[in-house]
């Protein structure tokens, strides 16, 4: 017993260090003066905190204690614009995904109708297709429709991934919920009001997880964004951050922009995380 918990603790420690150390390493750079950031050996923590990057990334100038002035560079404007676009895209993708998938996966889980199997297979197929393989066709289509370089186009293309994938995920979840529909009918709920007043509250954990998954997907989506919106006013945060790779190295700014891309995602995951655990604990009926 002691030995298992000891080795379990060790394993957890290794896993935590393995994932968090590189993130910590890059994130600390945001608060280190450019001269210190390139020193060897690099400082383990910002013992001498320096806030130039934190100001510059939001477009503000900064004068440090030694009187040196740091002016915002061009890429930082991109980051702020990318943040705004990413929030818009992730928000609408999440909301639209939920509006579609909740009734859709509920219907698949609970009702029998003609063509159900064929439709399910179609959904499975679109989950199985590697998204990259649809990139070129989408690109051509979007050019013809004038959707390249637009937030709308990006939202649409994100939905083509999130909707089938999360529908597939939620069908199983809805199936495992107790069949309270007859109970609701005896209590006088119509089919629609059963969905709204009974099933959705009952399924809130699964729906919250669906929201996390679609938000994080849209927030992190890079491949489509690179092709469709990079270099346009509709560019999202990941493409803006990647822009630093092609400039003269600015580790402080790169790090600050990573802070911006990680914090909202971490907040969303943090506030909805208890549902991830709950989703797997379908309450026992017996």
């Amino acid at each position: 017993m002691r030995r298992t918990s000891l080795s379990l603790g060790l394993a957890a420690l290794v896993a935590v260090i393995w994932t968090l150390l590189p993130i910590y390493w890059i994130l600390k750079t945001a608060f280190i003066a450019p001269v210190d950031a390139v020193a060897f050996p690099a400082p383990l923590w910002p013992s001498n905190p320096h806030f130039a990057a934190a100001h510059n990334i939001f477009g503000f100038g900064y004068t440090d204690a030694d009187g040196r002035e740091f002016l915002p560079a061009g890429q930082s404007k991109q980051v702020i614009n990318g943040l705004k676009n990413s929030v818009i895209v992730a928000f609408f993708v999440t909301v639209i995904t939920l509006l579609i998938i909740v009734p859709l996966s509920y219907a698949f889980a609970r009702f029998e109708f003609r063509g159900k199997t064929a439709l399910l297979m179609t959904i499975l197929f679109s989950v199985a297709v590697p998204p990259v393989s649809t990139l070129i066709p989408f690109f051509i289509l979007f050019i013809k429709l004038g959707l390249t370089g637009t937030t709308l186009g990006l939202i649409i293309i994100n939905l083509t991934i999130t909707v089938p994938f999360i529908t597939w995920m939620l069908i199983g979840y809805f199936r495992n919920l107790p069949a309270v529909e007859p109970l609701a009918r005896v209590d006088g709920f119509s089919r629609l009001s059963t969905l709204i007043f009974i099933v959705i509250p009952m399924a809130r954990s699964g729906i919250a997880v669906a929201a996390i998954v679609s938000f994080l997907f849209a927030w992190n989506e890079f491949v489509f964004a690179t092709q469709l919106v990079n270099g346009t006013p509709a560019a999202t945060l990941p493409t803006a951050v990647s822009g630093f790779l092609f400039l003269q190295p600015q580790p402080g700014l790169l790090s600050a922009s990573l802070w911006i891309s990680i914090i909202p995602a971490a907040l969303v995951a943090y506030f909805l995380q208890r549902h991830i655990a709950e989703m797997n604990l379908v309450e026992p009926v017996k």
Partner: peptide, 18 residues
């Protein structure tokens, strides 16, 4: 069902789990 003036107890005493 709701208009029939009945009350029902389901298999395994089903309740709304949430």
């Amino acid at each position: 069902p709701h208009a029939r003036d009945i009350a029902m107890v389901f298999q395994s005493s089903l309740l709304y789990p949430h």
